[in-house]
Structures are given as structure tokens and as C-alpha cells.
């Protein structure tokens, strides 16, 4: 495989990283299986493409895409908190509704950004950066998102959101309106996902109505791969794991495409990756690898408590 293919995988892994962070935010932080993803990713792409084709600045297009994603997340959140719709169904309802909305935004099933100015045509203008321009841009954007998300999750509000996903009853007894926390969490998650959609549309040079299909599974695959390799003991590690997982996932996809797998089989492959990744901890436990480390931690804690009490 040539270097450019690997570089491409790295670039995509970074740009899709924002989406993976969004999935991490809902599935892991909020403990809310949010299926809005498939719709909000395409929403971000559609909004960004439409705005760029209408002559707006590609950066502005990203900001608007981000805000639209937050709105989609809010809708799912309101369905769940106000109408008491179960999380899975709330996400599906928004996702399906977004399919029509996305078609309306785009006006057709596919919008091409060929010859339109994007943030990537802008960075490619700097000759000195060739061929690393898109990679550096992706790296900078993801680093920015990562740092902002980390700082946010460490604020009073961020902590309350994390606690909502961990122990709802406890944080409510500490005076937090958990419904509000869910709304904020879902809005942020889907804003990140839509941002990723807007970035990918500019990167690929088109927005397509079907580009979000299976995005939730791809996001989950990346989260799980990342956690298996990097771990999630601390917040920093968990966030870095999401990005690492995203990059590795894209590398695997590039690899199998290079090996001659028809692109139409990709969804099947993605599902398989999730299944394998979910089985991975079980396999590790059977081999006695994970339990060894965990047992030592638990052993230390138990010993400590015996001495103390």
C-alpha cells in the first residue's frame, strides 16, 4: 500500500473523529444509546454543502452545520425527556425525520462540491504544506475539539452530565435536573457529529443522502476499538481512545478496500468489527489477561478497606 493511502486513512480518521467523540458522549458519558447519529451526520454534510454552494464561507458552513446538529440532538432529547419516549426510539424518530429534512435541504439526493471552495481547497493553496495540508488541518481541528470537550467535561456542568450517565438518582438528589443534562449532552454530541458530517462532505467533495447510513455502528466500532487499545481509566484516556479508534477503524477500512473488498460489503464488515470488538474483552477475560490487572486493583482496594474498617 502506498503512503498516500495511509495518509488518507489518517486524515479520514481525524475528520471522522469528531463523530466518534459524539458517539462516545452519548453511549459512554450519558449512557444514552442515541441513534440520531445517522441523521445528524448527514444533516451536517447537507447544511455545509448547501451553504457552500450558495456562496457562503466554508468555515461559516461548518459552524451552521454544528448548530443544526445541536438542534437535532435537542429534538431527540425533548422526545425522551418530555414525551417519555424510550432513548432508542427517540433517536430513530429523529433520524427518520431528518432523512426528509436532509433531502429538502439539499433539494436532491447528492450535492457535488467539485470546483467549490472548501476548507481543504484553502489549505491546499499553501504549497509548503503539500501533501500534509489536509492532515494538519484535521489534526488541528480534532485537537481543538478534544481540548474543548475535555475542559467542558471537567466543569461543574460537565461533571453533572457525566454523573447523569453514571448514577441518575444520586445526581438528582444533589440538586441537578437530569433532564436538562441529557438535553445538553445530546445537543453537544450531535453538534460534534454534524460538524464531522460537514468536514467529511468538504473532504470528499460531495454530500449524499445515504452517507450517514450505519454511521452509529462505525462510531461504536471506533469507540470500542479505541477503548480496547487505549483504555478508559481516565477522561483523557477515554477521549484519546475515541480518536485512536477512529483512525484505526479508517485504516482497517482502507486496508480491506485495497485488498479488493467491494465497497458495497463495507457495512457488513463494520458490523463484524463491532461484534469482534465487543467479544474482545470476553476473549481477554477467558485468557486471563484483563482479570489479572483488575483483580490486582480490586485486591488493593479490598485490602485497604480491611485495614481501615
Amino acid at each position: 500500500m502506498s503512503l498516500s493511502v495511509w495518509l488518507g486513512a489518517l486524515e479520514q480518521g481525524l475528520l471522522w473523529g469528531a463523530m466518534v467523540l459524539g458517539v462516545y458522549m452519548t453511549f459512554r458519558v450519558l449512557d444514552f444509546p442515541d441513534l440520531t447519529v445517522d441523521g445528524s451526520f448527514t444533516l451536517g454534510a447537507a447544511v455545509a454543502a448547501k451553504l457552500i454552494l450558495s456562496g457562503y464561507d466554508p468555515w461559516l458552513a461548518l459552524v451552521v452545520a454544528l448548530l443544526c446538529g445541536a438542534l437535532a440532538g435537542l429534538v431527540t432529547g425533548l422526545l425522551h425527556t418530555q414525551l417519555k419516549v424510550a432513548p432508542l426510539l427517540a433517536g430513530i424518530l429523529t433520524m427518520i425525520a431528518l432523512y426528509s429534512i436532509n433531502l429538502r435541504i439539499m433539494g436532491q439526493a447528492n450535492l457535488s462540491l467539485l470546483r467549490a471552495p472548501t476548507i481543504f481547497t484553502w489549505i491546499k493553496g499553501y504549497a509548503a504544506l503539500v501533501p500534509l495540508g489536509p492532515f494538519l488541518l484535521g489534526l488541528m481541528l480534532v485537537a481543538l475539539v478534544l481540548v474543548l470537550l475535555y475542559l467542558f467535561l471537567d466543569t461543574e456542568l460537565g461533571m453533572a452530565i457525566r454523573a447523569t450517565g453514571d448514577n441518575e438518582q444520586m445526581i438528582r438528589s444533589l440538586g441537578v435536573n437530569t433532564n436538562t443534562m441529557k438535553l445538553i449532552g445530546l445537543a453537544i454530541a450531535n453538534a460534534l457529529i454534524a460538524l464531522s458530517g460537514g468536514l467529511i462532505a468538504q473532504y470528499q467533495g460531495f454530500a449524499d443522502i445515504g452517507m450517514g447510513i450505519g454511521m452509529i455502528v462505525a462510531g461504536l466500532a471506533a469507540v470500542i476499538i479505541g477503548e480496547a487499545l487505549v483504555g478508559r481509566q481516565t477522561l483523557v484516556r477515554a477521549l484519546l481512545a475515541a480518536i485512536t479508534g477512529s483512525i484505526i477503524y479508517r485504516a482497517v477500512i482502507s486496508l480491506v478496500l485495497q485488498l479488493g473488498l467491494p465497497p458495497t460489503d463495507l457495512k457488513l464488515l463494520t458490523s463484524l468489527i463491532v461484534v469482534i470488538a465487543m467479544a474482545f474483552p470476553l476473549v481477554r477475560r477467558h485468557l486471563g489477561l484483563k482479570t489479572l490487572r483488575l483483580r490486582s486493583e480490586q485486591g488493593a482496594a479490598a485490602k485497604q478497606s480491611n485495614e481501615d474498617l
Binding site: 466543569t155 456542568l157 461533571m159 454523573a163 448514577n167 440538586g175
Partner: peptide
């Protein structure tokens, strides 16, 4: 308590009981 969060994080959340939480 919130199991996935640290001792100090749990205490910090408890310290803010009944107060609005911002950034």
C-alpha cells in the same frame, strides 16, 4: 456515589448541591 468518577469529583458535585452549575 458515581462509581466511574473519582472521590474528589463526587465530593465536588456534592459540595454544589442546590447551587446552579455553570462552566
Amino acid at each position: 456515589t458515581a462509581a466511574s468518577m473519582t472521590i474528589e469529583e463526587n465530593l465536588a458535585m456534592a459540595l454544589r448541591r442546590g447551587r446552579p452549575r455553570f462552566l
